[in-house]
């Protein structure tokens, strides 16, 4: 059955209530502003980026570090590595707790890849964020609170899907990540009104499924 959620697994969640300034600096935090860190690894990277943005909406935290690992969860360095490490920083450990709780809620109930073919070997991430937080808005260069379609798929599917999404609704491309990314997927961030973003995401998912069903047209 297609388009079933492929739920992400949270592999580790840790807090550092009072981090060493050297560590804070190394991970992009500002020792003047931040004292506490919250860390999370997961086997799906893009849901974590969405979850990190979600955390900024629920707590007074900054996303200081968020990187995918080379070649994805299939080539992880250990059982807790997955394919992404996300780090949030705050001046107050309680804010870290609140931010991590928001991330976990988001990963368990909202953001996830979907299987684009029957056995789920083609994964697609056609996520619609109705209101951007501080993190992704800064990354995408969009105003806080705008809607965004966060679209990820393997290279060929992503390319065909992006074309379909752009043509399906009145959306503009805020950012396009051509392959290869760290995990060898391709991605695009589209913005527009919320209904347009939703229509674009649906068109993207449909195109990815269609490519999977007919990889060779000639």
């Amino acid at each position: 059955m297609i388009l079933e959620p492929l739920l992400p697994s949270i592999l580790s969640v840790r807090r550092i209530p009072n981090a060493d300034p050297a560590l804070l600096r190394a991970y992009g935090a500002d020792p003047e502003k931040h004292t506490s860190l919250g860390l999370l690894t997961c086997d799906q990277d893009d849901p974590v980026y969405v979850a990190l943005d979600e955390a900024t909406k629920h707590a007074s935290v900054d996303v200081v570090f968020a990187k995918s690992f080379w070649a994805g969860a299939g080539s992880a360095s250990g059982p807790l590595s997955g394919e992404v490490l996300g780090v949030i920083a705050a001046s107050d450990p309680a804010e870290i707790d609140e931010g991590l709780a928001a991330m976990i809620r988001c990963l368990e109930h909202d953001a996830c890849f979907y299987g684009a073919n029957d056995d789920g070997s083609i994964a697609v991430f056609p996520h619609v964020i109705s209101s951007l937080g501080h993190y992704l808005s800064a990354e995408a260069g969009l105003p806080v609170g705008s809607a965004m379609a966060y679209l990820v798929a393997p290279p060929m599917e992503a390319t065909i899907g992006l074309d379909a999404a752009l043509k399906a609704a009145d959306v503009t491309a805020a950012k396009v990540f051509t392959p290869p990314t760290e995990t060898n997927f391709a991605a695009a961030w589209l913005t527009g009104s919320l209904p347009d973003c939703e229509a674009a995401a649906v068109a993207y998912a449909e195109a990815v499924v269609a490519v999977g069903r007919e990889p060779r047209q000639l």
Binding site: M1, P5, A102, D110, H127, S130, V202, E206, V209
Partner: peptide, 22 residues
């Protein structure tokens, strides 16, 4: 907390593509 509409959208798309299994 606010959840995005993505899962509902995908469920509707699945139904529209005739792949829904009730």
């Amino acid at each position: 907390m606010s959840l995005s509409n993505t899962r509902t959208l995908m469920a509707e798309l699945r139904q529209r593509m005739g792949e829904d299994d009730p």
